[in-house]
């Protein structure tokens, strides 16, 4: 029988950060290897977690293996700190570690995210952890793991390029929206997880470490600070990010952020708002601050 009291498992029975030290060590070692070979997918012994695979277990294992008592954690899901998934993951880490959490991008030392990179530029002392559903950028064009591994080894990426070419032939342009493939340090083709194209330029020569974890697929990969990350493009079809020309956030009026489109159910009107809720709130607060100071 489940009651409000016994619904949560007894976190005190578990090691700090849920995972045992052996598991953490395994993940850290594989993380180090991933950092040493930017963009290369390192297989690792993915653990069972109290959330289902495919719900962020890759990112969560990275977070749990890296987090220390002094860290401050931020968890977002598609830019949103308040979505159910973000809240569950944040609570699990909180309950098994007791670390502080935040919604302020600037305050966090570890940021676990699904499908977005915060709008605010991160610092060298911050680590970005991305949840990855499909780490293999070639999987859509080549179903066999054996073959894709060989293709990476030989830098044989013509199949992926062919996919882009076929896009252009069929639709007149490259139609990959999220998870747009990138070349890391002129060597490995990498899936940047399903972030919008908008976020791709942020990881080029970024000053922070990005870690990518795929729990179900059992792969870890990384982009260390100051690494070249170039989105695939043809000479006559340059890479382009999403355009929000003429649109602005309905809350903060931003015209320089990635906007979500929502439809007003009553009027059918299309509305836009910042996908990064924390950034939006910060801007709104600043705007209120300036209004107040005006009033004085």
């Amino acid at each position: 029988m489940q009651t409000a009291e016994n619904r949560w498992f007894e976190t005190t029975n578990y090691n700090f950060a849920f995972l045992d030290e052996g598991s953490k060590r395994e993940i850290r070692r594989k993380t180090l290897k991933a950092v040493a070979i930017p963009g290369y997918q390192v297989p690792f012994a993915s653990r069972e977690l109290p959330i289902g695979r495919g719900w962020g277990t890759g990112g969560l294992q990275l977070t749990l293996s890296l987090i220390g008592k002094k860290d401050c954690l931020k968890v977002i899901d598609q830019g949103n700190d308040d979505s159910v998934n973000a809240v569950s993951i944040r609570r699990l880490v909180m309950e098994t570690t007791g670390v502080t959490t935040t919604e302020e991008t600037g305050e966090a030392t570890l940021i676990q995210t699904r499908h977005r990179i915060p709008e605010e530029t991160l610092r060298e002392d911050q680590i970005l952890i991305l949840q990855v559903p499909q780490p293999e950028p070639l999987r859509r064009v080549e179903p066999s793991e054996e073959v894709t591994r060989r293709q990476h080894a030989e830098m044989d990426y013509s199949a992926k390029w062919l996919q882009l070419y076929e896009n252009i032939v069929k639709w007149g342009n490259i139609t990959i929206g999220a998870d747009y493939p990138v070349m890391v340090q002129q060597r490995y083709l990498m899936a940047p997880s399903p972030i919008p194209r908008w976020d791709n330029p942020k990881i080029h020569q970024a000053n922070y470490l990005s870690l990518y974890g795929a729990g179900r697929e059992k792969k870890i990969y990384a982009i260390p600070p100051y690494t070249d990350v170039v989105s695939l493009h043809f000479e006559d079809y340059p890479f382009e990010v999403e355009s929000f020309t003429g649109k602005a956030c309905r809350h903060c009026g931003s015209t320089h952020t990635f906007l979500d489109e929502i439809t007003d159910e009553r009027t059918g009107e299309k509305l836009y708002q910042c996908s990064d809720t924390a950034y939006c709130k910060k801007r709104q607060k600043e705007q209120r601050g300036t209004e107040v100071s005006h009033g004085n």
């Binding site: 044989d156 013509s158 062919l162 070419y165 076929e166 252009i168 000479e235």
Partner: peptide
């Protein structure tokens, strides 16, 4: 051949492998 890809794409695959990255020229 890649049967479901376009015929021009089949040729493009070879050209891309030879470092041609200009769609017009391909």
């Amino acid at each position: 051949l890649r049967m479901t890809f376009s015929s021009s794409g089949n040729i493009a695959e070879k050209l891309i492998a030879a470092d041609n990255f200009h769609v017009g020229k391909i």
